[in-house]
Amino acid sequence: PPQTPIRAAMNSIQQLRGGLTSASDQPSGNLIVYFKNCTVDPSEEITKRVGQLGQIFCQKFAEAVGQRCEGLGKTRFTLGVQLHYKVMESMLKSEEKRLSVQNFSKLLNNATFHTSLLASALEVVLATYVGGSLKNGGSESPETDLCFPWILDVFQLHAFDFYKVIESFIKAEPTLKHDMIEHLGRCEHQIMESIAWKADSPLFELLRQSREEGPGEQAEPPAT
């Protein structure tokens, strides 16, 4: 049958949900082992943070889409949590292989890492649901208001921190569809072109530090 925008969107949603049928919205057994191997066990903090971010997400979702759609917000959030745990496990397996270590205490106790990872997973979920209408220039669905960088405002996340997880996210989730990889690439582009250069961006502090560290690699002239 011909591929209509609605059919394409439905397929993407089915594929996303299909890929998460065996995933849980709780950490898997493998993830729990990684948590227990940490010098400081992050389990409690992770669960607490997911709960808090869930409340914020559902509230902002309902404000944007309509209070009657609160249930939809919860469903989207649950899918995002499932995806983020799945990707976290895959990332840690890769890191274990690459670094030959099993103690990821610093990474797993880094709140910004977890928030950025959850935000990336939710961006994939939200973009999948909005998919068809956005691609065709339509804006009938109020969910188009939730497109990037909406999630950064909801979680009060610096764009530069979100940017840092994108590549590893794509590598860790090989079932990610082509159009979703393109979407994440566009988010990256948007961050580097504009959003990362807001006054409170951590990028300025990093640039200052790198200048103070003395002559290393020379920055390109501003015009370039």
């Binding site: 990332m91 990821f104 890492f113 997880v165 590893s168 794509i170 590598k171 393109e182």
Partner: peptide, 21 residues
């Protein structure tokens, strides 16, 4: 992911990006 430009080298990963060991 063929059209995505991977900028990280093979020896870099998420741990380095979040300033971890």
């Amino acid at each position: 992911s063929q059209d995505y430009h991977f900028g990280l080298e093979d020896h870099e990963g998420i741990s380095e990006l979040f300033d971890c060991d």
